[in-house]
Design a protein around this nucleic acid. Structure first.
Length: 571
RNA sequence: CGGGGCGUAGCGCAGUCUGGUAGCGCACCACACUGGGGGUGUGGUGGUCGCAGGUUCAAAUCCUGCCGUCCCGACCA
């Protein structure tokens, strides 16, 4: 590709409405342009990247035995009513009517359509298992689209759905997809982790999210320093440290005045009580609307996902209102404690291992010290309800947990028979009995991958593409091409040689100054740059510069393609 | 959905408080110089000042309504 024939729409300045680095760089490099909130054009340069990602995803899905198909973006409301999601999905589902006032929606996902396909095409267990995928535009009317294509309303997703006669077969495909995803992200050249995730409302034995690690990620994930264990922090079990020795003699329970102190920080700052020596008591509602006390150590946070899974609790977790607490218990939020509390009390395992503790006295302006679980709160339940923190022992038994941030780019889970039952997608088994098909579902955020890759791979000059995703493999930057026949000849012959070698090449044949060309190639993040100028040509070589390291090699023109091949293979 | 910010040329912004009929930098076009890191000069193109209504002799500026867009928040006691 000659730059003079391409649409390079780079910006020197950062658009003011872009906050995160990937969004800024995607706009500056001219990969995308905004059309409306959360809706973007993919410009020629950006589309090249997108297509590369899609192609790798497609190849690995096919290698793993999945078949590509294409389902519509516009879907009949009827199908969604059948699955029950027409009423459940909420305003994220963009609904519309056709000219006959029939309900339709823009597909935020395709379970309904795929299930309809399966029930009409698959009649026998002999046709199973079946794994179908598409790379398709989705629309989710997000409350708050943000971060460019990272959380946009219209986006491209690879979604695959598998159908099975039983759970065991589904598990096999599940792990095959796990492997395929691992290969995909490795081929893309991304630093990623597969992490155990919440199986959510649908259930199933497993669910894994694939995260690209980046400090700007929206999700927190925990992983072991010494093993492959990794989990979403929502899910990772919090293991108490070694049990502390009880004081001897046992401390006495003692009430003391704490005027205007209603937070753990107040106690720490004003009375010097370390947060690790106090506990905090939160109140949530159970399914009957009764209050339940949830207790964690002062320096820990409640994990709402874990707490919601306690027997009898509302899910998602609902915390109590201040007014109700005041009325029921006669004390404000900041003065609560488990001692003598006439409620069900659930204590986090780590808090329960404290030999004694400081807590609210259930009376405004007072706290208790010297409280001991066994003696003062004999009827409490103990459970894992806190958020893990850096340095917690790993649940796998090896090493400690480290928390890092990630961008979710893939998610695989087990659907069971939720949709096949709702939509009567059944097959006959070996005994001739009708069975709902067991389903799995596997998604990859294709457009999000592009942004995530930039979050992870950039510097002050711009994007640094992993080679597999780069819009061009090689940039040829001739200097003074219009003035020098030597430069022109060397450039044209290298261009032809690179094309012949099968690389995609951007040849900057524009009459721009060198600084402009260099800055642009660096902003675009093309992995290898070949600079051709009279100066170095006179000394018998071309300059080959790597985007990532900035290193430059001097190479004889006839050895150039060989050198480029080696560099591309190494990137 | 709640709170806040912003809307003036393709991009970044000033001008708004204190009303007088629109400006700067970048980009773009032409020419000249320059020619290995976003160069210099001269001359240009481009704007219903988000939209609608109101106040006024006069509105980018004041008032009202609407729209768009971005950010923050939506469990921590």
């Amino acid at each position: 590709m000659r730059a003079s024939e391409f649409l390079l729409s780079t910006l020197k300045e950062t658009p003011s409405d872009a906050e995160v680095i990937s969004h800024q760089l995607m706009l500056r490099a001219g990969l995308i342009r905004r059309v409306a909130a959360g809706i973007y054009n993919w410009m020629p340069l950006g589309l090249r990247v997108l297509r590369k990602v899609e192609q790798i995803v497609r190849e690995e899905m096919e290698r793993a035995g999945a078949l590509e198909l294409s389902m519509p973006v516009v879907q009949p409301g009827e199908l969604w009513q059948e699955s029950g999601r027409w009423d459940l999905y909420g305003p994220e589902l963009c609904r519309l009517e056709d000219r006959h006032q029939r309900p339709f929606c823009l597909g935020p996902t395709h379970e309904e359509v795929i299930t309809q396909i399966a029930r009409s095409e698959v009649k026998s267990y002999k046709q199973l298992p079946l794994n179908l995928f598409q790379i398709q535009t989705k629309f989710r009317d997000e409350i708050r689209p943000r971060f460019g294509v990272m959380r946009s309303r219209e986006f491209i997703m690879k979604d695959a759905y598998s159908f099975h006669i039983d759970q065991a077969c589904q598990e096999q495909t599940y792990w095959r997809m796990h492997e395929a995803y691992t290969t995909i992200f490795r081929r893309l050249g991304l630093d990623f982790r597969a992490v155990e995730a919440d199986t959510g409302a649908i259930g199933g034995n497993h669910s894994h999210e694939f995260h690209v690690l980046a400090t700007s990620g929206e999700d927190a994930i925990a992983f072991s320093t010494d093993s492959d264990y990794a989990a979403n922090v929502e899910l990772a079990p919090a293991i108490p440290g070694p049990q502390e020795e009880a004081g001897d003699p046992e401390p006495l329970l003692e009430k003391f005045a704490t005027p205007d102190m209603t937070t753990i920080e107040d106690l720490a700052e004003q009375l010097g009580i370390p947060a690790q020596r106090s506990i905090k008591t939160l109140l949530a509602k159970d399914a009957q609307g009764d209050l339940v006390a949830l207790v964690v150590r002062g320096d820990h946070r409640l994990n709402a996902v874990k707490a919601a899974k306690l027997p009898g609790m509302l899910s998602p977790l609902v915390l109590a209102e201040a007014a109700e607490v005041k009325q029921r218990l006669g004390a404000g939020f900041g003065s609560l404690g488990p001692v003598g509390l006439p409620l069900r009390v659930v204590v986090d395992r780590t808090a329960a291992s404290m030999p004694d503790f400081v807590c609210g006295a259930n009376e405004d302006g007072y706290h208790l010290r010297g409280a001991i679980w066994r003696r003062d709160v004999p009827d409490c339940e103990v459970a894992d309800i806190r958020e893990i923190v850096n340095g917690d022992p790993s649940p796998c038994g090896h090493g400690t947990l480290e928390i890092r941030r990630g961008i979710e780019v893939g998610h695989i889970f087990q659907l069971g028979t939720k949709y096949s039952e709702a939509m009567a997608a059944t097959v006959l088994d070996e005994q001739g009995r009708s069975q709902p098909m067991v389903m799995g579902c596997y998604g990859i955020g294709v457009t999000r991958i592009v942004a995530a890759a930039i979050e992870q791979n950039h510097d002050s000059k711009g994007i640094i593409w992993p080679t597999a995703m780069a819009p061009f493999d090689v940039a040829i930057v001739p200097l003074g091409m219009d003035k020098s026949d030597a430069v022109r000849d060397a450039t044209e012959s290298l261009y032809a040689a690179c094309e012949a070698a099968g690389w995609s090449v951007l040849m900057d044949d524009r009459p721009e100054r060198p600084g402009v060309k260099f800055a642009e190639v660096e902003l675009l993040g093309i992995p290898v740059r070949v600079t051709i100028g009279d100066r170095s040509l006179a000394e018998g070589h071309l300059e080959i510069t790597l985007r990532r390291s900035g290193e430059t090699d001097m190479v004889a023109p006839e050895k150039a393609t060989e050198a480029i091949r080696a560099l591309l293979a190494n990137q």
